[in-house]
Amino acid sequence: MIDDEELFAADLIGRRLLKVTTAWHHYADDDPSLVHLWLHLESLGPVLFHTPSTGLSLRADQPHGPYAMEEHGSVSVIDDSPDVPVTRFVGQTIRSVRQIDYNDGHVGFTAGLTLQFPSSSIRLLGLVDGLLIAHDQHLGAVEAHLHEDVTLARVMQTSGSCPSQWDAWTTTGQYLYLRYRHGEGTVEQHPSEDVDTWDGGESRLWTSWDDGTDGGQIELTDFLVTAGLRLAPDAEVRTTPPIDPKA
Rank of each mutant, 00 (worst) to 15 (best):
residue 2 I to M: 14
residue 123 R to Q: 15
residue 8 F to C: 12
residue 156 M to G: 11
residue 59 R to Y: 02
residue 25 H to G: 05
residue 119 S to L: 01
residue 126 G to K: 02
residue 225 V to P: 01
residue 74 S to V: 01
residue 179 R to H: 12
residue 243 I to L: 05
residue 90 V to A: 09
residue 138 H to P: 09
residue 96 S to V: 00
residue 146 L to P: 04
residue 61 D to Y: 10
residue 209 W to D: 02
residue 199 D to F: 13
residue 178 L to I: 06
residue 59 R to T: 01
residue 85 P to I: 02
residue 136 D to F: 00
residue 5 E to L: 13
residue 33 S to V: 12
residue 84 V to P: 07
residue 104 D to N: 15
residue 110 T to G: 06
residue 40 H to A: 08
residue 112 G to E: 10
residue 37 L to V: 00
residue 180 Y to Q: 01
residue 130 G to K: 14
residue 15 R to W: 09
residue 40 H to I: 00
residue 116 Q to L: 05
residue 178 L to K: 02
residue 171 T to I: 07
residue 225 V to K: 07
residue 192 S to Y: 04
residue 241 P to A: 08
residue 59 R to I: 02
residue 154 R to A: 08
residue 244 D to T: 06
residue 87 T to W: 11
residue 185 G to A: 14
residue 193 E to P: 05
residue 154 R to T: 09
residue 127 L to V: 09
residue 99 Q to W: 00
residue 159 S to F: 15
residue 111 A to F: 00
residue 65 G to Q: 15
residue 18 L to V: 02
residue 135 H to R: 04
residue 143 E to Y: 09
residue 80 D to I: 01
residue 119 S to A: 04
residue 169 W to Q: 12
residue 222 D to K: 06
residue 13 I to W: 13
residue 82 P to K: 13
residue 136 D to T: 04
residue 74 S to Y: 10
residue 206 W to T: 05
residue 225 V to A: 14
residue 87 T to A: 10
residue 208 S to A: 11
residue 121 S to H: 14
residue 104 D to P: 02
residue 45 G to P: 05
residue 227 A to M: 06
residue 180 Y to R: 00
residue 21 T to Y: 07
residue 98 R to A: 06
residue 44 L to G: 11
residue 133 I to E: 15
residue 171 T to C: 15
residue 141 A to Y: 13
residue 98 R to M: 03
residue 83 D to I: 09
residue 45 G to Y: 10
residue 231 L to E: 08
residue 46 P to W: 07
residue 78 I to Q: 11
residue 241 P to Q: 10
residue 36 H to K: 09
residue 24 W to I: 05
residue 89 F to T: 01
residue 168 A to I: 05
residue 40 H to C: 07
residue 232 A to W: 04
residue 232 A to M: 08
residue 12 L to F: 06
residue 39 L to Y: 02
residue 198 W to R: 08
residue 105 G to D: 03
residue 205 L to I: 14
residue 134 A to Y: 04
residue 192 S to N: 07
residue 246 K to M: 13
residue 51 T to W: 01
residue 32 P to Q: 14
residue 18 L to H: 04
residue 212 G to M: 09
residue 92 Q to S: 03
residue 26 H to Y: 12
residue 63 P to G: 03
residue 26 H to Q: 08
residue 228 G to N: 04
residue 202 E to Q: 12
residue 1 M to E: 07
residue 228 G to Q: 02
residue 179 R to Q: 09
residue 206 W to L: 12
residue 114 T to D: 10
residue 237 V to N: 07
residue 195 V to C: 13
residue 59 R to K: 09
residue 195 V to R: 15
residue 197 T to E: 07
residue 230 R to F: 06
residue 115 L to Q: 01
residue 187 V to K: 00
residue 203 S to Y: 00
residue 175 Y to P: 10
residue 164 S to C: 13
residue 38 W to K: 02
residue 188 E to I: 12
residue 222 D to H: 11
residue 39 L to I: 00
residue 158 T to K: 12
residue 211 D to M: 05
residue 200 G to N: 07
residue 13 I to T: 03
residue 152 L to V: 07
residue 11 D to I: 11
residue 194 D to E: 07
residue 55 G to A: 03
residue 227 A to F: 08
residue 58 L to M: 10
residue 221 T to K: 08
residue 240 T to F: 12
residue 71 E to D: 15
residue 60 A to Q: 13
residue 139 L to K: 06
residue 138 H to I: 06
